[in-house]
Design a protein around this nucleic acid. Structure first.
Lengths: 146, 146
DNA sequence: TATATAATCTACCGAAATTATAGACTTAAT
DNA sequence: ATTAAGTCTATAATTTCGGTAGATTATATA
């Protein structure tokens, strides 16, 4: 499962992507419209800023806005930022690699082999899931519904 | 990430699958050869027994053994047994479904749509990963290595 | 320059989950 | 009767998660 942090981050990012290039949005507005605890969201948006995805402006008329384009931000990046590795085992991650203590030979481990495949598939799908793509999907689902 | 419980469970199951139909194996032997804390492993094997995957025999000459055939036991089942849902969001699980509070309309949620795809792919790969299949892969990787 | 506004930083907190361990109890073989 | 093995219950240490509080800093504007 992804953490609430990631879920909130994605929701906030989608909101900011929809308002892309329309000036800064208040944390409070996002928190209220998306029903996210405000103080919690503050920390999340700040992290996204430090990651170079968002930018902010202080004082009156301030708020947060997307720095990157909505088609440059994907879910793989967001998940890794808050939850760390996407893979289901530490021995199959690129960035958070850790050897299994129990493992006799990593090279010939069948378990690892399976989880490597799972990771590859998952990362591929999550990389393709940019903010633009998610918004496109929502439009499509809405059209389908009517 | 999967829990240590699942990792230990898989390792123990592979071990038992390799010894399939050769009588009961001691918890202690599995714990030692696979470097798993014995008391922890006891609980895990007991859970696998209650799930109908293993059976046990008490007293001298006792131990655990596979009840199901190695090609009937897959990783999706094992993960669900200990860690619960495989999906990354509660709103895309079959067996552990929970509605997102923040969600305005589940039917048209683009985030959900993406994570549903991820789940489908993951479950498919994990279901195909039976104990037999994992052992087959290990042989293959060993041949490849030489 | 004072004031209001809004993000930022630091610290903390409680609950739950995770990863175990200890020890008494039950069952079965010899 | 004795020994060997799994089973059950309770507990404990540690970590993670989700969230809160409050002081501080930066900025717009009147």
């Amino acid at each position: 499962m992804i953490s609430k942090k990631v879920k909130y981050a994605i929701i906030a990012l989608i909101k900011l992507a929809r308002e892309h290039n329309r000036g800064p949005i208040l944390i409070r507005d996002i928190a209220e419209s998306e029903k996210i605890p405000q103080k919690f969201l503050e920390a999340i948006l700040n992290d996204l800023k430090h990651a170079g995805i968002l930018a902010s402006k202080k004082g009156k008329g301030g708020g947060y806005y997307l720095l990157k384009s909505p088609d440059e931000v994907n879910l793989a990046t967001v998940i890794r930022l808050f939850d760390g590795a996407i893979a289901l085992l530490p021995c199959v991650t690129y960035q958070y690699y850790e050897r299994c203590e129990e493992c006799k030979d990593e090279e010939t481990c069948g378990i690892r082999d399976v989880f490597k495949e799972v990771r590859d598939e998952t990362v591929e799908l999550l990389k393709a899931a940019t903010l633009s793509e998610i918004i496109r999907r929502e439009s499509k689902l809405e059209r389908k519904k009517q």
